[in-house]
Amino acid sequence: MLVCAVAFVSAAYVYTEEAKNWKGDFEKMMADWKIPQPELRPGDKTIEQLNNEVAKLTQDLAKANEQREMHQKKADDALVTIGLRDTEIQKLRGEITELQTSEKRLKDDVASIKTELKNLRDENQRLATEKEQARKDKRAAEQAMRKAQDELAACQDDLNNYRNQVLGLKRDLKTSMDLNKRYDDVFGEEGKRLAEAAKGPQPKINGLVKQADNKAGIILISVGKGDGVGTGMTFEVVRGTRYVGEIRVTDVYDEEAVCRVVVAKTRIAIQEGDYVTTRLQ
């Protein structure tokens, strides 16, 4: 639109200048009497008409100049606006560049944070694995400790049993020593003779306890002379797999023999049905 206005103003200006030149030439020609007045032909314009047209063209030219100035002002304003806009555009471009730089920096920060987050997740996974392994190790250690405690308790029970057995054996030994002393006091030389007779190898003879008087220390067994039993022989008394005591033959009959208790376990009394043998396998 601005270009059209400028073109229109330029054309009007050229037309007005030509009209001014024509008017001057015409007036000069009329002032010179030597120049004959042209005869008007039908359709030709009179000087007044031409003057009117010139005046109108002058007015049009003035209007065109006003419009040209107005459009020029608008054009200048537009150029100023364009300049301001160029400045704003440059400023916006600078801001865009800064934003792009900030965006790149933020992207780098996001990438760094993602890397750190991945490292933290890996570390968390490793710690979780170690924690689970520690829990397993703890459970295994607790189980091992409970097992060790159970074994310790069992060992303590065994130790107590062994102590009780030792105490029992000590009591049995004391009882046997007391019985031996009593037998020595009762039998005297006869007891020594029986002990001497029991020396040497004994044949393998097995039998059972028929009667038992633990208070008196007298035991009756089911084997006698017919089985090869002799005075002074010793028999081991057992009940199942448990050792009960030791007895020595004092009197022998055909099918049975009377014995005295030599070694007895105080907590286990010899009773009818116990197994007796001259040799423990």
Score class of each variant (00 low, 15 high):
Asp60Ile: 04
Lys63Pro: 00
Val80Gln: 08
Ala78His: 11
Thr81Lys: 13
Glu88Cys: 03
Glu66Tyr: 08
Thr58Met: 13
Gly43His: 05
Leu61Phe: 05
Asn119Gly: 03
Lys73Asn: 01
Ser102Asp: 08
Thr46Leu: 08
Gly43Ile: 10
Ala64Trp: 00
Lys56Phe: 14
Asp76Tyr: 05
Ile47Val: 09
Leu117Cys: 05
Val54His: 09
Asp44Gln: 14
Gln72Pro: 00
Arg93Met: 06
Leu57Val: 06
Lys74Asn: 07
Gly43Phe: 06
Arg41Tyr: 06
Asp109Val: 07
Val110Gly: 07
Leu106Arg: 05
Val80Cys: 06
Gly94Trp: 04
Lys118Pro: 02
Ile96Thr: 06
Glu48Arg: 14
His71Trp: 07
Ser102Gly: 07
Glu66Gly: 01
Leu84Ala: 15
Ile113Gln: 10
Asp86Ser: 11
Thr58Ile: 12
Val80Gly: 11
Leu50Trp: 01
Lys107Thr: 12
Asn52Arg: 15
Met70Leu: 02
Thr101Ala: 08
Asp76Met: 01
Thr46Glu: 12
Val54Glu: 04
Lys107His: 04
Lys107Gln: 07
Glu53Cys: 04
Met70Glu: 06
Asp44Phe: 10
Asn65Arg: 10
His71Glu: 00
Lys104Ala: 04
Gly94Phe: 03
Lys91Pro: 00
Arg85Thr: 13
Leu61Gln: 13
Ile113Cys: 01
Asp86Gln: 14
Arg85Val: 11
Lys118Gly: 02
Ile47Tyr: 15
